[in-house]
Amino acid sequence: MAGTRRAPASLAPADRIERAGSIPAFSRKLSGPVRLLLAAAALVYAVVVGGFERYSWPVTVAIVLVGSVAVVIAWRGPLIRDVDLPDPRGAVAWAVVFVALGLWELAALLMQPSLTTDSWEHPTLSTLMDSVLGSHPARSISIFVWLLVGGSLIRR
């Protein structure tokens, strides 16, 4: 009926989700063996891709491939229509943190000698990460964490 709102609490989880597509592996709770398999695949990917030199074509292709699959999965859903709106003041607090990070990073970027020249005095986050990501193990760990975050996001 138009103009009526369903109470979220009365809905079963399956009713809360409107599936724009069907990707069962990512829209259902994963079984233990599947999780283990995905974790092992992510670990192998991180070790292999971490072995490539930063900013090289092999690592670019590897990142773009995984990213493209993730965007396709995100496009297809599941879409959850009736998630309760968090307290707006709390959401604003988070927005302030992210905007501050963006502005601080932008300020550091603009205070470099040029946009393509790193500055020790005004380092961007990527400049600070240069020393961390210089070794194969550190790159592999970082890529593994990046994959974990992506996997967590894509299952929301």
Binding site: T60, I63, A70, V71, I73, A74, L133, W146, L153
Partner: peptide
């Protein structure tokens, strides 16, 4: 959100 996550990967690792 997923595009933002992909951008992070591209920014820190890819050319």
């Amino acid at each position: 959100v997923i595009t933002g996550w992909v951008w992070v990967g591209l920014h820190y690792f890819a050319r």
